[in-house]
Amino acid sequence: MTETAYNFAYLDEQTKRMIRRALLKALAIPGYQVPFASREMPMPYGWGTGGVQVSAAVLTPDDVLKVIDQGADDTTNAVSIRSFFQRTAGVATTTRTQEATVIQTRHRIPEVPLTEGQILVYQVPIPEPLRFLEPRESETRKMHALEDYGLMHVKLYEDISRHGHIATAYAYPVRVEARYVMDPSPIPKFDNPKLGDCPAIQLFGAGREQRLYALPPWTQVVSLDFEDHPFEPSKADHPCGLCGATDSYLDEVIVDDVGGRMFVCSDTDYCEARQAQGHRGKDAA
């Protein structure tokens, strides 16, 4: 049942139009951060208000919505956002990646490859990849305009000279169509290769920071690296304890207080589907 006091998907049509215009601009300039007049939402900043506004702007009554947080459909905030759209938009929801037309995510890209016609909406805390190198927005906007990414390369180089590796494990910066350096949101770098040449539309919303950006389908997205230190996606070097998958990103779960641990797929839908197909990991019942 929808709450009739509010418009479809909560936001009024004028606000949705403003967001859609910003999204169109974002799609036209892949990787460019478009300022938008983010609204106060009924959930706090930091809880995915940017993603929620983007989802609200793109949802239609026929859409099937999936919401994940940390790859899982049943984490508390994913549950909360899903029920928000059930209440305010009355849209159908699913946990199956293949069935969803709009997927809102925090910190992961689903394991099952996305397809044409799907929209993946990311919740973004700090949209500016240069923010931790330069705290001033006025400066970072200039750096993007001038394509001045030297500072970022110096940072990566310093990592290599100090640690032997680029010491960034998530929110690993990417370059879009050889132009804008973009923050892919705090997804593990394991997910970075899924950003490029993706048949789905990828939209990024940062509510508190009032920025939107986008990757249209089949966009070239390259994780920053050096010829002699190529980018390496990484994950825990184990198969999933429940479904035995060796190709999925894993969460480490502490199972006792004497150092026992197991590794399970962070993408719960992927893991459950594999188990339903009869795959079993070493810790499965």
């Binding site: 930091g46 809880w47 905030n77 910190h107 705090p186 593990p188 508190r208 990484s234 894993l250």
Partner: peptide
């Protein structure tokens, strides 16, 4: 307060990669 308090939300995935 939103951004400050959001660090209470799950960060398993980022933490795992760290």
């Amino acid at each position: 307060t939103g951004f400050l308090e959001h660090i209470k939300l799950p960060h398993y995935v980022d933490f795992q990669s760290e």
